[in-house]
């Protein structure tokens, strides 16, 4: 368990993506099938360093499967997925991928309900996640400042000592985004961040996500087209497990293929 020196995978600090070409995530020719159903079909996707990308697509288009592949939950049948140029994500497991700098927000908000907001962020801070370190861990002032800063970013400073389980749905979503930030990721994968949110909460979330782009690369999966319109600079449309179109929102909206298979349905 403690063979840090022996295993290159556990030396977490050394894994960092090489982004000299400006691309932080490469997914090339990725295919995944479940019992014959092709969830991802020869998919190619490139996410640039620091961009905010929206992924849209009908149910079953493969959005969540793609996230599962990137975060190590599902292994693709074929293809290559790499973080920067050199970090092969298919060789790493979930926690190693997380430590390499890819954070993921689930569709349903998952926070640690029996811990306070502060403790939720404390556990998510970047750093050694080993057992002995945890046992004798004390927060230093730098880390406390970092938590305070994140609390401010996600607007939960007043709720610091509250149990996360007592937060409202929207607040839980923000807390989860805060937890991702605490891990100082290079790439954030955000699955349906505004599902079930009120209009104000949605607006607040849009601001939050746009403010994160630049420092982090952000990939947002969302069904809410108004929301996508409000944040996206570049949109990728998935259809039946592969990329159907890519471009700005207006390009996408005028793309005949897209109108036919996706937006067409939505707009009547």
């Amino acid at each position: 368990m403690n063979n840090k020196a022996g295993s290159p995978l556990l030396a977490q600090d050394h894994i960092s993506p090489d982004t000299r070409h400006g691309v932080i995530l490469y997914a090339e020719n990725v295919s995944v099938s479940f019992d014959g159903f092709k969830a991802l079909n020869d998919l190619n996707l490139y996410i640039n360093d620091g961009e905010l990308r929206c992924l849209i697509g009908a149910n079953g288009a493969g959005k969540t499967t793609l996230m599962d592949v990137i975060t190590g939950k599902t292994r693709p049948d074929t293809g290559r997925v790499s973080f920067g140029q050199q970090v092969d994500l298919l060789q790493l497991n979930e926690s190693e991928i997380a430590n390499a700098g890819i954070g993921r927000k689930f569709q349903k908000p998952t926070v640690f309900e029996q811990l306070t907001v502060f403790q939720n962020l404390e556990l998510s801070l970047a750093g050694d996640k080993g057992i002995w370190v945890s046992l004798f861990h004390k927060l230093n002032s730098e880390q406390k400042d970092r938590i305070a800063e994140i609390l401010k970013t996600i607007g939960l400073t007043a709720n610091e000592t509250q149990l996360a389980g007592a937060l409202s749905h929207g607040q839980k979503q923000w807390l989860e985004i805060g937890m991702l930030l605490a891990a100082e990721p290079r790439l954030l994968l955000v699955d349906e961040p505004v599902a079930g949110m009120t209009a104000q909460e949605t607006e607040r979330t849009a601001e939050l996500l746009t403010s994160l782009a630049g420092k982090h690369s952000v990939v947002v999966v969302e069904h809410d087209m108004a929301f996508v319109r409000s944040i996206a600079r570049k949109v990728t449309v998935l259809h039946q497990g592969s990329v159907l179109a890519e471009g700005t929102m207006s390009e996408i909206q005028s793309n005949p293929d897209v109108i036919q298979v996706y937006l067409g349905e939505e707009q009547g």
Partner: peptide, 12 residues
């Protein structure tokens, strides 16, 4: 409470 979240935060 949320084993998967722990895993994706980077713990084993």
């Amino acid at each position: 409470d949320a084993e998967n979240r722990v895993r994706f935060v980077g713990y084993k």
